[in-house]
Write a protein that binds this DNA or RNA. Structure first.
Lengths: 217, 217
DNA sequence: AACAGACCTGACCATTCAGTCAAGATTTTT
DNA sequence: AAAAATCTTGACTGAATGGTCAGGTCTGTT
């Protein structure tokens, strides 16, 4: 606790622990994303982060606890992104920013998105409570906001729920189905393609609800 | 080969075999959808169709062959649906019909859709060749058609590829994320909700590309 | 330097699970 | 009715895997 800043490499005990945990969580996220919970093995995760398997069990008592931590971390990131849906902004700005942020997440957190998708597809055994509480509340407030836009005549009258699902689906698709997209594209999307895709998605969805979107960039 | 029609229950040897295989494939599809390939066990599939495990191995020599057959069957259904994208029709009709058909598939073949999603998310180890051949060809022809609509000024200029992905994503979401949707909805969507969701998706996407959609029903 | 506590790991164990097998039942053919 | 083919199944096996543990190492404290 003496000098907080310093060598960076050694760090305090707690810092080193956190760092190792992050190393394991990163590896676990990737392995869980690529193999699912059942298909992933502790050995594969150990190999992915270069630690002996027994060491993983020192930090995370068992596979399920490790998985749980991975999922919780993803939910945190999701929540942060959810904050970019500014309820005070105009629909144009709020939706464009939210969609853009979600596309960015799909690009930068592909594995996390896949783990989330897997978890939900398998009946959300771990995150059911989050769905019922946090996600539900968040969704309901946004639906209310969208309904307000409709009542004010800013956007076309549609069921806000289906609009939310459309946004989630479209943006997440670029992470969850990245392999399919890359196969059809002969390789990963490049910077320009990501921008184009993002702009196209914004354009379709905004016009779809009756907004004439301003220029993208 | 004598009387082809008749009792229906007994059937010929080949018919009974086919029926048993279908029974197993149905159960396997559900179990694979809910647990993933790695998480699914032959015993669970056996229980799901009420046969002893050893019997499964009589019909399908191993787990991977069974899985492969499940995936192939799904691809067949997908292909059939792909046919509803009428290249000769106007964009309005073609897209509305295709989207509607895909929404219907999400409702009626939830398990199949989930297995497909799982397969792709895990790098498509089984269906890679389909992606590269059949799916690729199909996609390219539809992209050409859409591009034709753009050139003719029927729809707004957008990259047809991102439009295809948006359609796939949005419609499949209702199967793959059914659990999340049902949690937020306090239960499965009813008939009216499915119709409303379908109409909303059609409305958003068609307007999104610059078509004023005719009435839904 | 000695000690204590946190961290690391190879070897091991118990369980689970895909896949086998041999013997029996059932249906078809001769 | 006998023989042959197909189908069924309980019991078993070998390999993989989650998890344990005893003993070692490193780090910070006194």
């Amino acid at each position: 606790m003496g000098q907080t800043e310093g060598g960076e490499k050694p760090g305090t005990r707690a810092e080193m622990r956190e760092e190792t945990e992050r190393l394991i969580l990163d590896a676990a996220e990737e392995v869980f994303a690529e193999s699912g919970f059942g298909g992933a093995t502790m050995q594969a995760i150990a190999d992915a982060c270069g630690l002996p398997k027994a060491n993983l069990h020192y930090y995370f008592s068992n596979k399920e606890k490790l998985y749980r931590r991975v999922v919780e971390r993803i939910f945190t990131i999701w929540l942060e992104a959810a904050g970019s849906f500014e309820t005070s902004a105009t629909p144009d700005v709020a939706l464009r920013r939210y969609i853009t942020r979600k596309m960015q997440l799909s690009r930068e957190h592909r594995f996390g998105s896949k783990v989330w998708a897997n978890e939900v597809m398998h009946g959300a055994p771990i995150i059911q409570d989050y769905l019922e509480t946090t996600l539900r509340r968040w969704t309901e407030t946004r639906i209310a906001v969208i309904q307000g836009w409709i009542d004010a005549g800013h956007i076309r009258p549609i069921n806000p729920r289906w609009l939310m699902y459309t946004i989630w689906a479209t943006t997440q698709h670029y992470a969850d189905f990245a392999h399919q997209i890359e196969t059809l594209n002969d390789g990963p999307l490049d910077e320009a393609q990501w921008q184009d895709a993002t702009e196209t998605v914004c354009g379709i969805l905004l016009r779809g609800i009756g907004i004439d979107p301003g220029t993208g960039a």
